[in-house]
Amino acid sequence: MTVLRLKSETIPVTAGQSVLDALLAHGVAVPNSCRSGVCQSCLMRLEDPSVEIPAAAQAGLKVSLRVQGYFLACSWQPTADLAVALPGEGLDFHTTVLANEDLGAAVRRVRLAVPEGFVWRAGQFLTLLRNDGLARSYSIASRPEDGWLELHVRRIPGGAMSGWLHDVVQPGDAMTVRGPFGECFYTTGRGEDTLLLAGTGTGLAPLLGVLREALAQGHAGPIRLFHGAVSAAGLYLRDELASLCARHANVRVQPVVLHAEGACDECVVGALDEVLLSAAPSDWRTARAWLCGDPMLVARMRKRLFMAGLSNRSIFADPFVPSAPA
């Protein structure tokens, strides 16, 4: 008898039955709609990366989801035992702070030790948990090969977590992280593509993750990074970005500020979406875009790139949704 394992439960699957039908029959509430592998409502994740997922169970999924073991529960009739999870279900990992450094622009770079078993891709995000249960999400700018988790934390006025990270947290302090989540990361293949990376504020963290991974994978096509802020005082890591450009001829970094007053020499003054669209490649079929930061701006950039001709499947967005007021 074939079985599914979901958390601590073991659920039988009859011959020819889909993962979805087996779970529903067992009373597990899995969201679903078309049951035809189209609507993607029944998205689930395979826990064991060594098991091969049939192509039909991943038809139409973005590469970023496929490589993470996501599949459509309605479209897999398993013939062997599977350990599965609902999307977003993660484990908590314990870690310690390695470094906590001021980057200017009210941003600190917090480096955490990599917890045993924590597998991520640069640009994904994690949820940081304080002992009292306070939780906030931060993007990961580092690659697993770097040997640490790099987070960029902007001080939010009155922010409980950011205030604590800025004022209190020291190297050696214990932390808990949950995740990783999100689709904002580089995937291999199509190494000649034009990569457009655009974000505001600490939206730079995931974009830097994507950039670092692309370079590590030997991406040969043009990479254009647009870092937006209200004024030049909101930009950070400029020296580090400049040195990346100096080392890699295919990388260009463009600071973009809204207000002419206080703009830097290299700054373009204007709205980030306008500047991004003005950098349109000649062929959208060989372009990909990562968009991070302010949700309204991310939505606007996404829509404009799509309307200009970029496939929705080539747009990876990570809107930074602020936490709800307590």
């Binding site: 078309c34 189209v38 609507c39």
Partner: peptide, 23 residues
């Protein structure tokens, strides 16, 4: 949400073109 809207429209277009569906 553009992702969700496109997924729904794709389900609809799959149906009206005679593709696999339970719409």
């Amino acid at each position: 949400d553009m992702d969700r809207q496109l997924a729904k429209q794709k389900a609809f277009l799959t149906m009206v073109t005679g593709g696999p569906n339970h719409y």
